[in-house]
Design a protein around this nucleic acid. Structure first.
Lengths: 123, 123
DNA sequence: TCAAACCCTCACACAGGTGTGAAGGTCAAA
DNA sequence: TTTGACCTTCACACCTGTGTGAGGGTTTGA
């Protein structure tokens, strides 16, 4: 798959796909003519990256956590340095905090919307 | 409370507190000498803002959703325009998507960390 | 063979959140 | 009265994710 198709299927500009590659979030092989070639699995991967970016994680962190998300494990345990494990734990906790914050505020919005709906129905 | 104390209690730089005010996320009264004076409740409010910013929401959106989060309601239903309600619904859905993405990835990190821990314990 | 539609690299530009520092006013304690 | 710790506004500057376009090569179909 070339960059245009990947862009289309993920709703991501070509520019950004190259940027993600530059940041080490995705990899591509090159055809003889220099064009990038992408594996089918990159579609999900890019979607995942976009979700994490949208959720406030910087590419630096995303790059660190992506290898742990593969099944089967792409990263073998002995390779995991204590520093990296500490980073992962810290990020996991930050993500938990983010989820809590988002959930709390989203529920408040929902409640507000429900109240408005009821008000309008009653009127 | 002056800006220094609020900064200290929220772990936010004075610069940012002024920035949030400029963006309409918080308000302050002014003392006779021109110093900003903050209400006690601003502590929680600022923490909430920081959480939402960290979760990827821009100040523009945060400003729109904050009024719906007050209890008792600071915004009366008739004031809510259809456009604003549509924005809120859209944001609520985006937040739900963010929560799902974050939860999924955080769980994967947790699982990875658990596997590493077990591996190290067994060794 | 030519045009359209791809692809490449490189570079400038922008917006948003944030840091930093200058130039200056206020206030409290020594 | 002076010093130090506050506060003010203003402005420049950074990083990150993203858009856009120039200048140029490749492939495919009319």
């Amino acid at each position: 798959m070339r960059i245009g198709e990947l862009a289309e299927r993920t709703g991501t500009s070509r520019r950004l796909l190259r940027y993600y590659e530059e940041r080490g979030l995705i990899v591509s092989t090159r055809c003889a003519n220099g064009y990038r070639a992408y594996d089918e699995r990159l579609v999900d991967r890019v979607l995942q990256i976009r979700g994490l970016l949208d959720a406030g994680l910087p590419t630096r962190i995303i790059k660190q956590i992506l290898p742990c998300l593969d099944k089967p494990r792409a990263i073998y345990f002995p390779d995991a340095t204590p520093e990296m494990l500490a980073t992962l734990e810290r990020e996991r906790d930050r993500m938990t905090a983010r989820v809590a914050c988002l959930t709390r505020n989203r529920d408040a919005i929902s409640e507000y919307l429900d109240a408005v709906k009821e008000y309008n129905g009653r009127r």
